[in-house]
Structures are given as C-alpha cells and as structure tokens.
Design a protein around this nucleic acid. Structure first.
Length: 431
RNA sequence: UCCGAAAUAGCUCAGCGGUAGAGCGGGUGGCUGUUAACCACUAGGUCGGGGGUUCGAAUCCCUCUUUCGGAGCCA
C-alpha cells in the first residue's frame, strides 16, 4: 500500500492508510498498545487493540522498542478526546528493524551527552522543529533575494588569501601552490559578480578558526552574503530590513507548529516585524554609557552591550557609521566624517545579538589601495580585487547574514549549536 | 587563550570521612484510553586517570584529562 505522510492524515479520515516511520514512544495497557509514530512530516498516536488483529501482530506491537522502524496500517480516526487530532486504529504492524536500546531517554540529558549523540538527537521533537525552521529561514532568504533581482553567485570555499585579515583561518596544503585557506566569507568574490549580474548573493558554509567559546559561535557556519551594484549605504540597510522582515513573516506563517513545540514567544516575533531602529555608533555609545556601560568611544560592542542596546526594543537595531579603525579595510569612508565608515551591524532583540554585518564598499582605487597598504596586506594577492576599481567601478554595498544566529533568534534557541545539524565547535568535531 | 564550575549505574542526579542510592531507561509480569501512563518484581557501579593524607576516601589535598558556563573575537 502507498505511504501516506502523517501531515496529510486528515485528508484520509475514515480510510485505511499505510504509515511508515519510527516509534517515538510506546505505552501498553493490557489489551491496548499506544504507539507514538513519527515520520518526519509529523507525529500521530497509533492504537493497537488486541481483538482487532492476530495474536502475532499484537505481540509485535507490544514488543516494539523506542525508535524501531515500522510500517503501520490502520484506519485514520479523530481522537475520542480531541476531535481536531487524528489517531490511527491499527490493523497491522510490520517491523523493518527492531531498534536496540535507544540511548536518548524521555527525561532530560546533559549537553555533552546530547552532542555526542547528535546523529540521534536530531530526531527529538525540539531538534526536529529547529531544523524545520532552519529550512524555512534558508529558503525565505533565497526567495526574497530571487524576487528582488539578486542572482545566486557561488563563491569558492578554497581560497588563496584572507578576506578580512583580522580573524584566523583554517589552513591547508594546496598541491604545489602552497597554502590555501577555507573561506571565512565570499564577499570579495561577490564584488566581482555584481559587475556581471548586477545584484548577487552566495549562501554556504564559511570557516573561522577563532578560539571562541560562546553560545553564539561555531567554527563552521552558514552565511548568506549579498552584494548589489549602485546601492548605497541607506538603501543597503533598507534591503536588510525588508529581507529580515520577510523571513519573520515567513516563519510565522509556515512554522506555527514548530514554534509551539519550541514554546517560542510568538508575540515577540510579531512585534519585530515593524520598522527597525537606526542609531549611529556614536549615539549607541552615548546611550549605553547613559545606561551604565563602561564602553568607550571607538570600541566595539561587547555581548553585554548588545543586550543592553536592544533591551526594551521589540525591533532589531541597526548600528551604523562605525569608527574606521575597528572595521574592515573595504568599507567606504563616510563622506561627512573621514574617521567613520559606512558600515552597519544589525543587532537582534531578546539578546540574540549581531545577525548581520554590512557596509557600502570603497569604490575608489587609490583610497582602497592606501587602506590596504596601511594594513600591510599582500597587495599582489589582491590584484584581481583592485581591478574591480579600475574597470567600471560603481558605488556598491552588501551584507552578510549568519544563518544559525538568525535561526536561533527565530526559533528562540538559546545556544547556536542546536541550529545546525552537526555543529563544529572548538572542542568538538564528532560526530 | 583567560576566568569559573563539574566528572558517581546506559542517562539525569543525590550522597560530601564509616557497608554505593533515587528517578528515567533495560528485563519479567499486571492493567480496554494511555499522554515523559501507572503498579509489582528484577538486573545493572574499580564513584574520570594517577599520586597523597587517614585505622578507614566517592567524600579531604595535589596533579593530569575531559566537559560545561562566561569573557574576548565575530555572523
């Protein structure tokens, strides 16, 4: 019999259907066996009643273990105590594989154990929900960009040099060509793409060998970088805002069940779909100092500062016009103040921190070269990048979104390690 | 890398100088509506490794290892 997905069960009310999946939980009560079956699309309670089937079939149902893979046939009926919910009145149970004693129990576990069993943990309902939200966020971002004249332009993962000199790179031997590195951002390559396609984005894993050990860092994470020709600083932020608000609405519209499983505060998400705040870095420092922070002008925001900044704000906050010393070499100077650059960060509310970094890029050959020389960058390695300012340079801007941080915010997940199937962290690479 | 905490049954933990405990999970049995079901019985441990103090160490001290939480860096 053809497989029916649990999410579609209501369409088959009263019919005999065949469900294929795994046993999430099992309870017996004499002549009754209650099997919670999940199939990836959802979960349902299947009830095996002894008089409805052969002795052997009932025995098979009774002997099922957690996470056994099964094919269950039965009739879809509304739950006697809850008409909105369906259950399956079982007529047959076929066991594909009777699972060994399953390591993950029904009660709580510690993070070390769960991370060591990540390959199994992803089956748990909260993890399932987060991964489905990740899927939704990923495609919502692509959808928005595709609908707004951006083209997918994949940048390489193996690169000959650093994008931003500041962070540490994973290094590897590249045949006879010497050292190569795993990309920490595709941005510089994206800048070449706008000269061909106008507006482009990439979306893939990037790698940072920073020895960071916080709930907001991974050594391998997924980043979407977007870059657009003829777009300047203000419009750049406008695109970021529209994109994020599009993602929020998409998650609210399509992931109600997942958000409920995660006990996500829906109202907080709804409230974030409103015009974002914009503050200059200077004003942010003033604001934070007035609230009691020790932060000084010219410095980056710490974790505490990010929390303090968005405290009481339902919407994300743009921090723009940063001191040039603490930002990357490629950012364009603020025409109104040569000590600043036209860069922006976007800080998510509810303590989820920075989710976007973006800027208008320096489009003048001489200014860019001077800045690179000042930072003692190997100019020869960046000839191709400097070429972009020699052959039809245009004003242009772009930004990068950390997928996992955005998913953490959408799903209300405290630690970023749960927002990617297999998190890579400083002290963990298994499984 | 720095600061802090922890390591006891398969898992989550209690025990904190005097015979190693609970809940969950496993096994056996019972129950016609359970919802992390319940009830009874049952198996399961060189208390992270090494060294020390003591009549006696899971418990106190030293050391190593591992993990967790936080900071900085960033998305």
């Amino acid at each position: 019999m053809k497989q029916v997905f649990i999410k579609d069960i209501a369409k088959h009310a009263g019919q005999e259907v065949c469900l294929k999946g795994w046993v999430r939980n099992i309870r017996h009560s004499g002549k009754l066996v209650f099997i919670i079956l999940r199939d990836g699309s959802g979960e349902i309670q299947a009830i095996a009643f002894k008089p409805d089937m052969s002795e052997e079939t009932f025995e098979r149902a009774k002997r099922l273990t957690l996470e056994s893979s099964v094919v269950i046939t039965g009739v879809a009926k509304p739950h006697p105590k809850n008409e909105a919910q369906y259950e399956l009145s079982v007529s047959n149970v076929e066991v594909f594989q009777l699972a060994d004693e399953y390591p993950i129990g029904k009660k709580e576990h510690g993070p070390d154990f769960l991370l060591s069993n990540r390959h199994l943990w992803i089956r748990s309902s909260k993890q399932w929900a987060v991964l489905r939200i990740r899927h939704t966020v990923y495609f919502a971002i692509c959808e928005y960009l595709n609908n707004n004249n951006f083209f997918r332009f994949d940048s390489p993962i193996l690169t000959p040099n650093a994008c931003e000199g500041t962070t540490t790179l994973f290094e590897l031997e590249y045949f006879d060509e010497g050292q190569a590195y795993l990309s920490q951002s595709g941005q510089l390559y994206l800048e070449t793409g706008i000269m061909s396609l106008g507006r482009v984005y990439d979306f893939g894993p990037v790698f940072r060998a920073e020895r960071s050990k916080t709930r907001k860092h991974l050594t391998e994470f997924w980043m979407m970088d977007a870059e657009a020709a003829w777009v300047e600083h203000d419009e750049n932020m406008q695109i970021q805002e529209e994109l994020i608000r599009y993602v929020i609405r998409k998650v609210l519209d399509t992931c109600a069940n997942e958000l409920q499983i995660l006990e996500r505060d829906i109202d907080a998400l709804k409230a974030a779909d409103a015009p974002f705040k914009r503050m200059t870095h200077h004003d942010v420092i003033e604001y934070l100092r007035a609230k009691g922070s020790e932060i000084t002008h010219g410095s980056d925001l710490g974790a505490q500062d990010e929390v303090m900044l968005t405290e009481g704000s339902p919407v994300p906050v743009f921090v723009e016009r940063w001191p040039k010393e603490i930002k990357a070499f490629y950012m364009k100077r603020d025409p109104q103040n040569p000590d600043l650059v036209l860069g922006n960060d976007l800080i998510a509310p509810e303590g989820f921190g920075e989710i976007i970094g973006g800027s208008q890029r320096e489009d003048d050959y001489d200014l860019l070269l001077a800045r690179m020389q000042a930072e003692k960058m190997p100019i020869e390695d960046y000839r191709w990048f400097l070429d972009l300012r020699k052959y039809g340079s245009v004003p242009h801007s772009g930004f990068g979104i950390g997928l996992e941080r955005l998913v953490a915010w959408m799903s209300g997940t405290h630690h970023i390690r749960e927002t990617i199937p297999f998190p890579r962290m400083i002290y963990r690479i298994y499984p």
